[in-house]
Design a protein around this nucleic acid. Sequence first.
DNA 1: ACCTGAACACCGTTCAAGT
DNA 2: ACCTGAACACCGTTCAAGT
Lengths: 186, 186
Amino acid sequence: MTRDKLVQVAATLLDRGGEQAVTLRAVGHAAGLSHNAPYKHFRNRDALLAAVAIEDFEALTVAFTSVRSSPCSPKDKLLAALLSLVTFSREKPARYRLLFSAPSLAEANPELQARSAACLGEIVAMVDACKSVAELPDAPTKSLASLLLATVHGLVAMEANGILQPAKGLPTVEENLALMASLLSR
Amino acid sequence: MTRDKLVQVAATLLDRGGEQAVTLRAVGHAAGLSHNAPYKHFRNRDALLAAVAIEDFEALTVAFTSVRSSPCSPKDKLLAALLSLVTFSREKPARYRLLFSAPSLAEANPELQARSAACLGEIVAMVDACKSVAELPDAPTKSLASLLLATVHGLVAMEANGILQPAKGLPTVEENLALMASLLSR
DNA sequence: ACCTGAACACCGTTCAAGT
DNA sequence: ACCTGAACACCGTTCAAGT
């Protein structure tokens, strides 16, 4: 389908040249269509970017579901999920930013909000599993889940922004996460 | 000075209409100059935005220094500093995003990186003061400081992205920070 | 239903020229 | 030194028209 191809092309352009590389003209051309063919499938540029974000949230949710059914301990599952987010942010920074650092996109897009909620729901489920075997403190599940997700996002955002520089004696994202884990399991 | 006026105009436009409202033409016009006067003071648009970010980092650093010399307990100082970041992100979201969610800006701007490092340095100092009176766990100071800053940034980013919706039973930024504080002081 | 091409109103950026 | 105005190459978006 043309629509799917446009979304895929947009994702590729995001990975190759960042958000500024995603012009609707480039998307149309790379899909072998005219410069405004995208308008036959998306209301505007933001709607196309939101479609990319929705697909990525879906893929993350599927990946998290898969992690949940793996034979690891609850805590290892949770850590694996969080670390996969770190990997995603490093390999596809522009697309990652669409998910967690693009307020204007989510603002008027209920479906995108629903997908991010579903993704967070997977984290909530993993946190719940940890709590049931006492691998996490006895705080509200949703609080722990949002706090953990926020920590991961904050760390990768700071890393991307050059604030977390190992050269300046600052710990890496992984070291920070390990510290967070040790603080939680005291 | 014209340069300062351009930076101030850019900041005002950011607050009023977000990053997309900051066109160099609008900046020049709002400063009573021609559409390309900004080029006499800044290499390009990114350099102007970076100048705004640098001023904001400086102001934050000054505010943090002031908090440090207040008569509160070390822990209250740290919390006050972190909460002032939350306030900043809510009142001036576009400018806040320039500080912590604009990788392309910091990438080729050593001065901006230095200012963000100085700002983080204030947090480090406050964390150190907490540790010296045993109000924080005995983990490396820089690790605790970066972890705390990351948590705050992650929370306000998730809030801005509509992921932290109190309507869906999720805790507010403040509630999450209180949980983080309680986890640290166990 | 889906696509194209021309057109409009913008923008960042450059450059020659003014004082 | 600092600013202006014209110009260039883009872009998002709209619209009439094609199949």
